[in-house]
Design a protein around this nucleic acid. Structure first.
Length: 251
DNA sequence: CTGGGGACGGGGCCC
DNA sequence: GGGGCCCCGTCCCCA
């Protein structure tokens, strides 16, 4: 199974299309320790499939391929007739008293029954969010986002404007590059308070802290064994614990 | 095989 | 709106 972030890896080369008109300029973080170090020659961007990014266009709110809003979202939900218009109105107490039957609504998409006001409205909002708010589509992949800012952030994952001057590896965000630079410098600013072991990555410290805990974060539902990482839990489950458990449950 | 570390990606939140 | 940061997560590698 391909790793999406491995696809964007640039270990020995850079495939960076010319998005100059689209994205923020390439960021080179040049800390003091670079001084005196020979800087690698950054390969020129290779041309990928022309269809991938040609012609270059600038994303704007008007030029973005906005998906038309669903013309009719209301059929998704089934409200009691007396309440059918409350979704767009302030329902903070102006409603007349309802019977218990009126307090249930059925989502026509999922068939789920939800308590009115809280449950069903939230339920409806989930669908509305999914259908109407994700209006900004990435031209390089199928992803959609609810805001232009989120889309721009995502596009950086395609363009990788932050390039390490030491190895030429490219990253989508400056702080990712900074974290990568620590692999060159050996800087480890995150220390474990228990064993004083240091880490370059806060997430790795967090995972390490789990090893000091008797009860770890990820617990097998079947045998209650706990693990410091979800991946370890998944490995454990795939190794047969769950299968054994299920076979026991079947009888 | 298992557990842990290293490296890194993406979305969301906050300023 | 953009950048920084946080959190969660994944995969690879190694002891």
């Amino acid at each position: 199974m391909p790793r999406s972030f491995l696809v964007k890896k640039h270990t020995n080369y850079i495939k960076k299309p010319n998005y100059s008109e689209l994205e923020s300029p390439t960021v080179f973080i040049t800390p003091h320790f670079y001084k005196g170090l020979p800087l690698p020659v950054i390969p020129q961007p290779e041309i990928l499939s022309p269809a991938a990014y040609s012609p270059i266009t600038v994303w704007t709110t008007s030029s973005l391929p906005l998906s038309p809003l669903p013309s009719d979202l209301s059929p998704i939900f089934s409200y009691p007739s007396s309440l059918s218009d409350t979704s767009s109105k302030d329902h903070s107490g102006s409603e007349s008293p309802r019977s218990d039957e009126d307090e249930l609504g059925i989502c026509k998409l999922t068939g789920e029954a939800e308590k009115f006001q809280c449950g069903l409205l939230k339920h409806k909002q989930l669908h509305c969010d999914a259908q109407s708010r994700k209006s900004f589509s990435c031209k390089y992949c199928e992803k959609e986002y609810v805001s232009l800012g989120a889309l721009k952030m995502h596009i950086r994952t395609h363009t990788l404007p932050c390039v390490c001057k030491i190895c030429g590896k490219a990253f989508s965000r400056p702080w990712l590059l900074q974290g990568h630079i620590r692999t060159h410098t050996g800087e480890k600013p995150f220390s474990c308070p228990h064993c004083n072991r240091a880490f370059a990555d806060r997430s790795n410290l967090r995972a390490h802290l789990q090893t000091h805990s008797d009860v770890k974060k990820y617990q097998c539902k079947n045998c209650s064994k706990t693990f410091s990482r979800m991946s370890l839990l998944h490995k454990h489950e795939e190794s047969g614990c769950c299968a054994a458990h299920l076979s026991c449950k079947v009888d």
